[in-house]
């Protein structure tokens, strides 16, 4: 029974990681950038949602504003930060991104204070149970949200003209351009979608914990980097599997080796072990 509950808890966390990590791996797949500041955008989404929800009383409105605004913010980050340094060695963008993430976190702390915001009225706090297995409604929403959003993403990429252009650009940008694909537009769309996914994850996490704080992005930011590396940088399906696997491994790890390592270290132990055995990640990129 304990194992079932641990697995469920792991899958719930894994869903959150998946929503964050898929955006990161999309950015990496297209531009070879480790976009650490992704987690800063995630926190921005949570703040917008909680502030609007508390001001208007409508969580739906908060989410409806947060998701596109963060999507736009992602496009702005690309335009102002990454685009001018794409031709530089890869560490340049990585370190710039770490710098931006620190600036964002510190700005949230200075603007909104260090203690965080809570919703005036907690949402989805009731428990739902199926037989002996129970979970918070917000946890169910997290898993359902991940399935729906990632399903829409899969549809978009496999079944639409935009999706074809997108995948073509990832595979061979020069060739895609020769066939008339606007590869620059694809990059902006990529950042919009990735950032909007991060904001969705943030709204769900904010509801689940009923807390939005300046540092809420720290742990996901570094952990999702581990996940996309495990998934084979740029490989979306691999990233999904790695996200869920990591959620479950953490849940079991905190019970069984929690006296040796803390939760975050367990994730990185797994990462380091996998990389030493398979340097290209669990699943090689395309």
């Amino acid at each position: 029974m304990l194992h079932v509950e641990l697995t469920i808890q792991g899958l719930i966390n894994g869903s959150m990681y998946a929503l964050m990590a898929v955006g990161l791996t999309l950015v990496y797949g297209l531009l070879r950038i480790l976009h650490v500041a992704h987690a800063g955008l995630y926190t921005l989404g949570a703040y917008i949602a909680v502030l609007i929800a508390n001001a208007t009383g409508s969580l739906a409105l908060g989410a409806a504003v947060a998701i596109p605004v963060v999507g736009l913010a992602g496009m702005i980050v690309y335009r102002l930060l990454y685009e001018p340094i794409l031709h530089r060695p890869p560490y340049v963008a990585l370190i710039a991104s770490i710098g931006l993430f620190i600036v964002m976190e510190e700005s949230y702390r200075l603007i909104f204070g260090p203690y965080g915001e809570t919703f005036n009225a907690p949402y989805l706090a009731e428990r739902v149970s199926v037989g002996p297995i129970g979970a918070k409604a917000a946890e169910v929403a997290m898993v359902a949200g991940a399935i729906v959003l990632l399903g829409v993403l899969a549809f978009l990429s496999k079944r639409t003209r935009f999706g074809i252009a997108w995948r073509a650009t990832v595979t061979d940008p020069a060739m895609a351009r020769a066939f008339g694909v606007d590869t620059i537009a694809v990059r902006y769309a990529n950042f919009f979608i990735a950032s909007a996914l991060a904001a969705s994850a943030a709204v769900l996490v904010a509801v689940l914990n009923n807390l939005v704080e300046p540092t809420m992005g720290s742990v996901p930011s570094y952990k999702t980097l581990a996940i996309i590396v495990l998934g084979g940088l740029g490989n979306v399906a691999g990233t999904l599997v790695a996200a869920l696997a990591l959620g479950v491994i953490e849940a079991f790890g905190t019970i069984y080796i929690g006296h040796l390592l803390d939760r975050d270290a367990i994730a990185f132990l797994f990462l380091v072990l996998v990389l030493m055995i398979r340097p290209q990640g669990l699943f090689a990129a395309r």
Partner: peptide
């Protein structure tokens, strides 16, 4: 990039 993430992981470990 893999080395960057590995060394970051070593730090957290």
């Amino acid at each position: 990039d893999f080395l960057a993430i590995t060394t970051m992981g070593v730090g957290f470990l």
